[in-house]
């Protein structure tokens, strides 16, 4: 067991596990965001629960942050190692003949997603941490006594440039997932009779979830 993370397959496995964890997180994030379209009250209630329940705040949130950082750091480490494995490039290389654009450019779609996460943290996570843990206001309420979460969400999506940036980021997310979903299963050794079905499910996931996020951003922009 010792040294498994120092091996190429061990790193691949760890990368895949963190990816699978992040894909599950993405699904629950999407489900909660979708509530904001159908029921602002339900969205407020769930957001307050997620933002104040101790197990989520002090156990799951640190695990999530670790998962995000681990996935990015490991991605960069692997990219650097892989570049060292070929120091002289081909004069002519026809990558499109044997692999998808998404699979060859995971580092770039990943960098775009990293930039988006920085913006997303600036927009939502840092103000949330400031309100709750620096100002000490755990009530989740506005001055008028109503929950603040839906109001804050709508306010953020007034700016068309922010909406545009979010939509572009979701396109990169879709490109990343189109390769990443099935790649994660291959990395953990799952290539069997279920692979064909899983590939279809992975493509659907990679398109439906980012498209749903685009819809939610546009919905709040046009319904403010």
């Amino acid at each position: 067991m010792s040294g498994i993370l120092n091996s190429s397959i061990g790193r691949k496995f760890a990368m895949a596990l963190s990816a699978l964890f992040l894909m599950i997180f993405l699904l629950q994030h999407f489900a909660i965001n979708l509530l904001s379209v159908f029921s602002p009250d339900a969205f407020n209630d769930v957001s307050h629960f997620m933002g104040t329940f101790w197990a989520i705040q002090y156990l799951l949130q640190p695990v999530l942050i670790f998962g995000v950082i681990f996935h990015f750091v490991m991605g960069f480490v692997l990219e650097i190692k892989n570049r060292k494995a070929r120091t002289i490039s081909y004069a002519k290389n026809n990558g499109a003949a044997n692999s998808s654009w998404m699979s060859r450019n995971m580092i770039y779609s990943g960098l775009a997603i990293l930039a988006f996460i920085c913006l997303h943290f600036y927009d939502f996570w840092l103000p949330e941490i400031n309100t709750k843990y620096i100002q000490g206001d755990m009530s989740g309420l506005l001055a008028n006594g109503e929950f603040r979460y839906f109001e804050e969400l709508q306010h953020k999506f007034v700016d068309i440039w922010r909406v545009a940036l979010y939509c572009i980021a979701f396109i990169f997310l879709a490109l990343h997932l189109l390769h990443g979903f099935n790649s994660a299963f291959q990395s953990v050794g799952a290539n069997n009779k279920y692979t064909k079905g899983l590939k279809g499910f992975g493509k659907a996931y990679a398109i439906i979830i980012p498209l749903g996020f685009v819809f939610i951003a546009l919905f709040h922009h046009f319904n403010h």
Binding site: K12, L78, K81, A85, N98, S100, S103, Q186, G189, N191
Partner: peptide, 27 residues
């Protein structure tokens, strides 16, 4: 280098060795 599952190897392999073999090795 480390495999990132692009599948280029399977396409270019003159003997058609399948990616299933990589998954089997991983497991």
């Amino acid at each position: 280098g480390n495999c990132t599952n692009t599948g280029a190897c399977e396409v270019e392999c003159p003997k058609g060795i399948s990616l299933e073999n990589i998954a089997r090795m991983n497991s």
